[in-house]
Design a protein around this nucleic acid. Structure first.
Lengths: 227, 227
DNA sequence: CCGTATCCAATAAGATACTG
DNA sequence: CAGTATCTTATTGGATACGG
């Protein structure tokens, strides 16, 4: 016999769940809480520290972030590790299964930006904008154009490199890049997806490669108002 | 200048959002509320009435369902329509854009069932189990085997028909099916994904076609405990 | 710097009863 | 059947203080 659905009976269950064997319902129990999927997003390009996560999730409070990290770890989506010396700091990183969420995260984003209500004017994190490049990459436009593109947000570097119809992105040092853009996620977004000219960005290295590079990304069309 | 982040300042904003231009964050503003994506799931195979939705979402309360439907309509994901006479009842149906969420819903489900914590023993709705057939369909095993398979849950019929590497599913009358299975979602799930023998199902029509049909669906492997 | 603990205010969700 | 209305409970977020 099932438990009665009273507040008291529910309290002894782990937490509010959906009594539903459907995979989707389980997905929502794994990452359906507020902030959870955004935390996962921030871990998709490599391990992060607590303070970095907090800084890149505007509005999350330390206690909520800490709680999400505990839950995601319990569920096997992330793990807590210590970076090798000399850094030796504690970081959070996605497990292999957690990393499998990356295509889902990109697909959700691609679907959602078709909304007419989407406001691209707000803050974005470096991870967001770098993942958006994977999402919005136009392989046809790129052909076999494949420069090694560096992006520097403050003191964190990312490298993007088109190859074989996809674009590989990783957090990394910027050695060997054909060009390096030092910018903010918002400025970069305005060039990639808005009207801002390339000249608003501080670019070192081969500017002409950069000029072509930023044309490789296109937003999907908005939903027609009729729906 | 931005609004201060005080309770009072927040109250004049529409609701709790993520101040984040990332597409994922917007997706969560569209369908991130509790139950929202499950409501969308129920609409992926055609229009539904309020009471049907409430019945197939175990544990949702009428007020929360009503609120979600209003929100999803405002956001352009569903619309409220009236079925043509003689039915003339009001139903909810997904917009074209809303229907585009179907692959996302399936992908989320497929990813989540790899969790070792997933318990397939709970209730499922007819829509869940029929969508799971699309998710778990093994095109290789099917080859060009493509019977017209009927499923009857109470008085609601669905037809599934493999063709060209996919499996088409729709809510529909069961005329012209090669076989019809009258069952519950749970019983069907036990045969498709568990050990239950075909004989637990009430089948009319060509049982041998049904016997092969139920072998075409396989769950993805569980995540190894190490993560 | 990296969190944990505590407390309060504001929302969201749930149970239940009720109406057209 | 298709929801509202009302009340209770749970979760969230924000602030702040504190410990390793």
């Amino acid at each position: 016999m099932r438990l009665e659905n009273t507040p008291k009976a529910r309290r002894i269950e782990a937490k509010r769940g959906y009594d539903d064997a459907c995979g989707l319902a389980h997905a929502l129990e794994l990452v359906g809480e507020r902030w959870a999927l955004l935390v996962m997003r921030e871990l998709m390009l490599g391990p992060r520290r607590f303070s970095g996560l907090k800084a890149d999730l505007p509005g999350i409070s330390a206690n909520v972030l800490a709680q999400r990290l505990v839950e995601l770890e319990e569920r096997g989506l992330i793990r807590r590790t210590r970076l090798p010396p000399p850094a030796s700091v504690q970081v959070y990183e996605a497990t292999d299964w957690g990393l499998d969420a990356a295509p889902l995260i990109r697909a959700l984003g691609k679907w959602a930006v078709r909304s007419t209500r989407h406001d691209p004017g707000q803050q974005v994190s470096p991870v967001s904008i770098m993942m958006s490049m994977q999402t919005m990459f136009d392989a046809l436009a790129a052909g076999d154009f494949g420069p090694r593109a560096g992006f520097l947000f403050g003191d964190v570097g990312y490298v993007a490199e088109p190859r074989e119809g996809e674009i590989h992105v990783e957090r990394s040092g910027l050695e060997g890049c054909d060009f390096v853009v030092a910018t903010t996620p918002e400025e970069l977004g305005a060039v990639l997806y808005g009207d801002a000219p390339l000249e608003t960005l501080a670019i070192s290295g081969d500017t002409e490669l950069a000029r072509r590079f930023v044309t490789l990304f296109t937003l999907p069309p908005k939903v027609e108002p009729a729906g």
